[in-house]
Design a binder for these strands. Sequence first.
DNA 1: AATGAATGAGAGTTCATTCAT
DNA 2: AATGAATGAACTCTCATTCAT
Lengths: 189, 189, 189, 189
Amino acid sequence: MAGIPRKVPEQRRQDLVLAAFELLAEKGFEGLRTRDVAARAGVNIATLHYYFPTKEALIGGVVEHVMTRFRSTLEPHGSPDRQLRNHLRAVRKLMREEPEVGAVMGELALRSARDPAIASLVRSTQETWHQVVRGLLRRAAKEGHIQPDLDSDAAAAMVLATLTAMTLPLQAAPHHELALRQLERWLGL
Amino acid sequence: MAGIPRKVPEQRRQDLVLAAFELLAEKGFEGLRTRDVAARAGVNIATLHYYFPTKEALIGGVVEHVMTRFRSTLEPHGSPDRQLRNHLRAVRKLMREEPEVGAVMGELALRSARDPAIASLVRSTQETWHQVVRGLLRRAAKEGHIQPDLDSDAAAAMVLATLTAMTLPLQAAPHHELALRQLERWLGL
Amino acid sequence: MAGIPRKVPEQRRQDLVLAAFELLAEKGFEGLRTRDVAARAGVNIATLHYYFPTKEALIGGVVEHVMTRFRSTLEPHGSPDRQLRNHLRAVRKLMREEPEVGAVMGELALRSARDPAIASLVRSTQETWHQVVRGLLRRAAKEGHIQPDLDSDAAAAMVLATLTAMTLPLQAAPHHELALRQLERWLGL
Amino acid sequence: MAGIPRKVPEQRRQDLVLAAFELLAEKGFEGLRTRDVAARAGVNIATLHYYFPTKEALIGGVVEHVMTRFRSTLEPHGSPDRQLRNHLRAVRKLMREEPEVGAVMGELALRSARDPAIASLVRSTQETWHQVVRGLLRRAAKEGHIQPDLDSDAAAAMVLATLTAMTLPLQAAPHHELALRQLERWLGL
DNA sequence: AATGAATGAGAGTTCATTCAT
DNA sequence: AATGAATGAACTCTCATTCAT
């Protein structure tokens, strides 16, 4: 009398978030339909609303997922200059292997102009990111790995700008590799 | 007995494009409604369809408008290094004074991942832009205004990446000024 | 200083009626659009409404046209039996050479169930037609050309039914020729 | 606390088809509106689209219904001549008691000139009908119930033509009874 | 925990008609 | 006599959400 094994509720939630994440990357907010999400997760539309009362709540889950995914590119290993290089590479790798993350981040970036909740989340992420990179630049300069007279604040801003542009679709920001190489060169990495 | 003065047709078209442009900047593709566009332009929804058979056609008009607007930042005046500096400043000014242009360009960038028509337009715009900037960098280097050993191709890619990031909402790309200042510094402008 | 020669108003009206007639045959009432009619007649939609205040009025013109066209199959030549045979042949010829007439008559037949104006017109046409055919049958019988014991009323009803079925599209009433041949045989023509 | 009792889904479908059938008979394709259908079936317009994705699909349901209804006039009971007579009477009865069937069949006949799907359906129905009637005529002749020298093919064509005309509104094909009586007389039924 | 059925509000688009010239 | 521009009303279809089970 076992029947189809029920999934643990937490797993269901995760399935739905993942389905929404993928569809958001594919179709954008413009084309995101709760019915499609439910279908991709293999459940009824009413079940989706059982786990997420509104579409907005579901999107919240996706945001969380993406932010977690992105934070993984900032894991501290080795000296500051190595950490910096690793970060650049990790971002490049993430964009190549999981372009969905970039796509969704782009969507969130645009939406932050209209959605206060997303805005504050995006802003705080950027701020944290900025501080981490600036700190790495400062320590790298102090330890003599990169040019010492660098304005770490401004340089960090440029690093973020360049990496942020890379989350956009290829058409909108081609020459990823060239830009990154030039960035490393200027930083002296 | 004058009645309401009729507008010149070309003016009506322009009004509609402008209304669509503003609403696209405000709400994104996700929230763009033809009825709202018509209302903002002060005409009946059927009148909108008299000028633009489909929503897609209207969006085409908006794209044209934005591209024209953006191209205005690339006007050739003076030496290559001055042109470069002017371009950077013009973009900064445009984003400050007409953030809608940036917002819409961001929307187009994201949409280019799904819409072939927009994709090719965005791509060709980027390509032209890249070539112009690279040409300016080359001539500026040759004339001794900036460092001569610069890889003009890679540097152009970085310029574009930085400027492209600036079209995103402030939350998603803060520290515009810092980034731009650093860019000028590195270029030696 | 001649310019494009203006058409006589009556000609314009006729052009519009003809265009409407053709389009009604092609698309049916379901697909009849005043704009298409105007376009086919080569005039502006507002011009159409100058000649025909409403779509209904235009349709009235078409009805008139079709009835005239159909009445042409009932021209008296020769003896009653010859007239009968000629009538059958004229209908057959009309349906072959101008199937639009049949198509439009079919449309009118159906519409007569909802449109009192058309209903009375269709009814009176049928009544006249019935009387003519019955009269011919009677005289033909009296003159010994066809079987004398024929119920001219019932036979006329059958003639009309058969010919009416022939105005329907081929799919709905195939074997025209067979049916007509049998009719002639039974009538002894 | 019973609330409004839910209908069985199949019943809902049938209700919708029936509503569409009635409205199609009343207003024709020209005047058939999905909202009216939903209203007559007592459901929201969105519910209609839950059962039938498109208007076309709903019409498909109506076609099926009508064909089933019409086929019921061709039930084999008794000798060939009795079957023939019964068929004629069943059609007459159907047209009298459910004129909607005739109206809808007329609509389908006209539409078959434009709609390939309906065309093939109408054509195959006619072909089957023709063969059945021809077969009955042959066997009736062989068994000596009707005149033996009858061209069964041509006679079948005439039977169909007459009966088809009877599906049209009364205005367009009056004297049903007379025509049918004459048909029986000629066939010797 | 999960679902099929149902819905209100609203989307883009169409159409006969009218208005000002 | 003729037109381009404009419109109100209505059309089919969609979507996030809810209800009864």
